[in-house]
């Protein structure tokens, strides 16, 4: 008997892509139907947004601080120390803050959704929901994906602000830049073409994290082992998708001349 492992993996990969596409199509069908679960949506916004805020805030602050401290020697070498606030702010707003925020959310929210829904699947809670007359897809999936799509941009915007504040402290550790001058330089260099693409792509990051997290959890099998696998693969796939979306966003921004 001839075993052809690469072909098996390729088929599994294509099947997975097909299943995720069908899952996403079902999401759009369910969203367009009336009677949404608004209460659960608000609840999920609280869990995804508010409960992730501290983690995102601390990370963003350290990110801004470290980036500034690390960038200083190179700029000093070229005699361009005065460009430090401008350079750091563009790097943070355009790329680093949104992507790092999305990766943190992929880790925390994606794995949380994968584990929670996976555990509900294997303990028959999703079946119980269906038997009680509630549409579990609408109650569990639609609310979480919508909340992630809305909250990741909010978290990313807050991360932008906090990381810039970290940058201010970083600049002042070994230099002397006033509060007003720092922000004057930051907003002097940032414009619409920096902010908008950065904000728009975070909606896609949030959507991808929500879809992958709920897909993995909702379709979890094989007991507790399956729950663990759902949580892990949700993080891996969501993180990978964040980078792929970022790559596509950069290409589109470039084509549209927004660089």
């Amino acid at each position: 008997m001839k075993l052809n492992f690469p072909n098996i993996e390729k088929n599994q990969f294509l099947n997975e892509i097909g299943d995720i596409s069908r899952f996403t199509a079902r999401f759009f069908r369910e969203v367009s139907k009336p009677k949404q679960e608004y209460r659960e949506f608000i609840n999920q916004c609280y869990w995804i947004g508010y409960k992730t805020l501290t983690l995102v805030g601390i990370t963003a602050f350290i990110m801004g601080l470290v980036l500034t401290i690390q960038s200083r020697p190179t700029l000093v070498e070229f005699g361009a120390e005065s460009y430090l606030p401008s350079m750091v702010s563009v790097s943070l707003i355009r790329e680093i803050a949104p992507v790092i925020t999305a990766l943190i959310c992929a880790g925390k929210i994606g794995s949380g959704m994968g584990a929670e829904l996976g555990s509900m699947r294997v303990t028959e809670q999703i079946d119980a929901m269906e038997v009680s007359g509630t549409n579990p897809f609408k109650y569990l999936v639609v609310t979480r994906v919508m909340a992630a799509t809305l909250m990741v941009p909010v978290l990313s915007s807050l991360a932008n602000a906090i990381s810039l504040y970290g940058g201010y402290l970083g600049v002042n550790i070994r230099g002397q830049v006033s509060w007003h001058l720092y922000w004057f330089q930051v907003f002097g260099v940032l414009d619409f073409s920096d902010m908008l693409p950065s904000l728009v792509k975070t909606f896609f990051f949030g959507f991808a994290i929500g879809i992958i997290g709920t897909y993995k959890g909702y379709n979890s099998t094989k007991g507790t082992e399956g729950v663990g696998r759902s949580a892990t693969t949700a993080v891996i796939v969501a993180s990978l998708l964040v980078f792929i979306i970022d790559l596509i966003a950069v290409q589109i921004t470039d084509i549209l001349g927004l660089t």
Partner: peptide, 8 residues
Amino acid sequence: FQSNALYD
């Protein structure tokens, strides 16, 4: 349900 399926 066999596993009770109470919402945790």
